[in-house]
Amino acid sequence: MYSFDIEQPKTIADAVAALAGDEEAMALGGGQTLIPTLKARLAAPSRLISLTAIPEMHGICMDDDGRVCIGASTTHAEVAEGVRASYPALSALAGHIGDPAVRNRGTLGGSIANNDPSACYPAAALGSGATIITNARAIAADDFFTGLFETCLEEGEIITELRFSVPEAASYQKFAQPASRFALVGVFLARFSDGVRVAVTGASEGGVYRWSDAEAALNEDFSAAALEGIAASPQGMIGDIHASPEYRAHLVGVMTRRAVAAAS
């Protein structure tokens, strides 16, 4: 690793000021992605501004609209425990990210900000139609994820909280890549009173996306049979040593049908 200093501010305002005052500074969440990146010398920040010691970025509550609100520095393990009753599909997703040690450090905000094309949380945020709250604004998940490792976050902007509307039924189906434990393909399906959302991770070269054909079919008839004859196209799907684009496209269908069955 190149050399850098670490700062551990106690408030969002101090963290934002520290990042604004230094173009070379970077936010540090749980470090479960950033530290391996630093070791590989793929980033050379002057300073890391840790977001994990900020009390106002931790914790889970329910707002007046019945949304589950989660501080961005809440760890995957804390989410898995904390939303078990209020949002079981999200709890199950968080409880299967990586392994216990990763879940004890990795944070919701770090995962969403990183937008790894194989990460789990982006699918939950997009599939739930969550709202991403930053120090500056509120962003709909539909507008937030803009491409591979790309989001609409501005320089120095930090995610402070996510708000999830809780669907009537939901399921996350992950086909784990056995070495990395990320999703080879993952599908987060959520059925709300006003419609079904299907978010796919791990598959597309453009990162997480909504499978609109499946949503339309499921809005007509919420059953696995409704998906018969609807296939995801391998066009634009990731192909690597783990799986070809065709195989990933096939898995998108399989995982979606499993999610429908689990949420029925």
Partner: peptide, 23 residues
């Protein structure tokens, strides 16, 4: 996982956390 230790009672990978974070 060869580097797993407990920090504040939780298992973590000591190769994926900075010493200063354990202050």
């Amino acid at each position: 996982g060869a580097c797993v230790v407990h920090v504040s009672g939780k298992a973590v990978k000591a190769c994926t956390m900075f010493a200063q974070e354990a202050e």
